[in-house]
Amino acid sequence: MAQAATARATVGDSEFDRDTALTRREPGVYDIDLSAGWTVFGAVNGGYLLAVLGRALTDALPHPDPFTLSAHYLTASRPGPAIVRTELVRTGRTLSTGQASLLQYDEEGREVERLRVLASYGDLDALPDDVRTTAEPPAIPPPDQCFGADDAPAPGSVSSPITDRLMLKLDPATLGWALGEPSGKGEMRAWFGFADGRDADPLALLLAVDALPPTAFELGLTGWVPTVELTVHVRCRPAPGPLRVSVTTRNLAGGFLEEDAEVWDGAGRLVAQSRQLARARLG
């Protein structure tokens, strides 16, 4: 397990930043080594991959912040070398749109596309501050009354490399699956942060929406729940401190389920929303 950090990491100087950093080979083409530290059940986490492509688009597009990204996960990514290719689709005064693909090589040396994203970027700091909403932050007990991987009944029973890099404290009301008593409600709630103390920024929100255990666990299913498509809306720049993340599933049918996520910051603002379609292993 990762050792406790001796000092808080900062945005731009953290493990997340290092593991999402790309090297520009030429305009629109980037190289990266996908870290094994962000894997679940041996597969690279979809939120981490989205943050990688989000960082590439931040470099490639004229606007600085992700507003919306829609990602289709074509094949499972593995740790190791990868290529990201970006393309500017359109640019305007307040928004620019681009697309990005992540590719790796197969055993025969052929390129295989793993992930494709279409995204619109803008400037979060230029948005008006009026809010008209009926959404409310999820009711989650304080972090010291919630549970992380270190609190599991058997050491390592719910741990994976990604959990060592995160501060995840799960709401006890959504932890029945860990005790062999899933609620059947399809809900997951947690406090989210980085283990090294790095505060969240817009790119980190792309990870946060896909960082909790799958809601399928509370439906009584086990194993990997691979993402088919994930759309994220970033609403504003998060305040420093841990985030509250709530994920719900209302429908599991035909072997597929949706997950709707909301991310709230310490100022009580809805900073990100997402919906994904995932495949459930029913057998």
Rank of each mutant, 00 (worst) to 15 (best):
D151S: 12
A278Q: 04
A280I: 04
P202C: 03
A76N: 08
L53Y: 03
G197Y: 08
V131P: 06
G254R: 11
A43R: 14
G193V: 06
G12E: 13
D210F: 03
G156E: 06
L124P: 03
R269W: 02
L257G: 02
D31K: 10
D17S: 13
R237E: 14
R235T: 00
P138I: 02
S14C: 07
D125F: 01
I162S: 01
Q273Y: 03
E15Q: 06
D13P: 13
G184K: 04
R237W: 14
T231P: 00
A278E: 00
G109Y: 02
L207D: 08
H63I: 07
S157M: 13
A126K: 13
P240K: 11
M167E: 13
T6Y: 10
V89W: 07
G80K: 11
L69R: 08
P238E: 09
L206P: 05
L277Q: 08
D59I: 09
L270A: 03
W38P: 00
V40N: 10
D17G: 12
V209M: 00
L50A: 15
S35R: 07
E187S: 05
A267M: 03
H72F: 08
E259D: 10
L206S: 01
P137M: 13
A239D: 11
A71L: 00
P142G: 03
A173C: 09
T215Q: 04
P79K: 15
T222R: 15
L282Q: 15
S274I: 03
A211M: 00
S101R: 15
H233F: 02
G255S: 12
K185I: 04
S159Q: 10
L34I: 12
R250Y: 08
L270Y: 03
D123M: 10
R24H: 09
G184A: 04
S77M: 06
G28A: 03
L50P: 00
A135C: 10
L61N: 12
L22K: 01
V245E: 05
D171E: 03
G254P: 04
A154R: 13
R237S: 15
D171Q: 05
L124N: 04
T134W: 10
V247A: 14
A7T: 07
E181G: 04
D130E: 14
P81S: 11
E111R: 10
F16T: 01
P62M: 01
G254D: 08
R24Q: 15
E259P: 01
L168V: 09
L118G: 12
D151K: 07
T23E: 11
R189Q: 09
E111P: 11
S35W: 05
P155R: 07
Q3E: 14
T134P: 01
T68L: 07
I32D: 06
S274K: 02
A278V: 05
D65S: 11
V89K: 11
T248G: 02
T86N: 12
A5Q: 06
T97N: 14
T222G: 06
D19H: 05
A154F: 15
V228M: 06
I162P: 00
H72R: 15
T94G: 09
G80N: 06
E262F: 01
P62G: 07
Q3S: 14
L252S: 14
W38I: 07
R25I: 12
G37M: 09
G255A: 09
